[in-house]
């Protein structure tokens, strides 16, 4: 190693040490733990113990089903909503644009516990404003927390509320990078605003939308806060339990770190696989 490089590495050493101890080692360690039976002390090496259980565990498949359901429904809805919000924010007709931008972004900076508590109140069966509104338009009350379908819907609404604005701001940055004269050329070509949106805006936003989708997929695969706080640990009866919640339950309630590690690696593997498939499907033609 050249002297000049050695000096640089000496400066980097503190960071690299911390990185190795708190990032690299847990990754390796959890992978190794996933091959150990950890339900009883002492832990013992049993390669198929956790991974074998995973394949036949109904709780795992329930959590996987719930997570994928949220992924398939909530992510496209949220991204679509974010695109619409970004287009509205980008409109020259909009007044007080800065205020709207802040308002859309604000949910991200609100504490998770606070927003979950507010959502629980808003969707409460007897006192919630949502049910009152439903009643006022002649619709029956919905028990959001006792039935699986409304509870899943509630999780999706909450996650969408929290992250749509965040994605809208990212998409807005992409929108603002599209030069005006491309639209002017299309206007001279007699292309309507709607066609401009579908034939120019959306294709040019594709990289940004893919980026947002990848972030959302990773986020959804790790979804924990909303089912933990809003629907009370994945209730009703595990109806909203996600992989993140299963991991928590196994690791920190049952202290079964081996199985929790196997779930964690499955989550990461699925997130990577889904992301790769999506990147492949949306790749740029050569």
């Amino acid at each position: 190693m050249r002297y000049r490089n050695a000096t640089a590495y000496r400066f980097l050493t503190p960071y690299l040490l911390i990185f190795a101890i708190f990032w690299i080692w847990p990754i390796i360690s959890s992978f190794l733990i996933s091959f150990q039976a950890t339900r009883t002390v002492p832990w013992r090496f049993a390669p198929t113990f956790n991974w074998g259980r995973l394949i036949g565990d109904p709780a795992f498949f329930n959590a996987l089903k719930n997570t994928l359901l949220i992924l398939v429904i909530q992510v496209p809805v949220m991204i679509s909503l974010a695109i619409v919000m970004a287009v509205l924010l980008n409109s020259p007709l909009l007044k007080a644009r800065g205020l709207y931008r802040f308002a859309f972004f604000a949910p991200v900076v609100v504490g998770e516990v606070a927003y979950s508590a507010v959502f629980r109140l808003m969707f409460s069966l007897d006192f919630g404003i949502v049910n009152k509104l439903l009643n006022s338009v002649g619709l029956p009350k919905i028990d959001w927390f006792s039935n699986v379908t409304p509870a899943m819907a509630l999780i999706m609404i909450a996650v969408t509320w929290r992250w749509a604005g965040y994605n809208a701001i990212i998409i807005l940055a992409g929108l603002q990078s599209i030069p005006d004269d491309v639209y002017e050329a299309a206007t001279l070509d007699r292309v309507s605003k709607v066609k401009q949106f579908f034939h120019i805006t959306l294709p040019l936003l594709k990289p940004v939308i893919v980026f947002c989708a990848v972030l959302s997929i990773i986020g959804t695969m790790q979804l924990f806060t909303e089912p933990f706080l809003i629907t009370e640990r994945g209730g009703p009866g595990g109806g909203t339990e996600t992989l993140g919640l299963l991991l928590y339950r196994q690791g920190f309630r049952s202290l079964n770190f081996g199985y929790a590690s196997a779930v964690a690696y499955t989550m990461a593997g699925l997130a990577i696989a889904i992301t790769l498939v999506q990147l492949w499907l949306t790749r740029e033609p050569k």
Partner: peptide
């Protein structure tokens, strides 16, 4: 009259080609 109905065509400084 709308730009598209004026019977004109314009070449822009930045070309304004559709990149995709």
């Amino acid at each position: 009259v709308e730009p598209a109905d004026r019977g004109i065509a314009m070449v822009f400084q930045s070309y304004a080609l559709y990149p995709h």
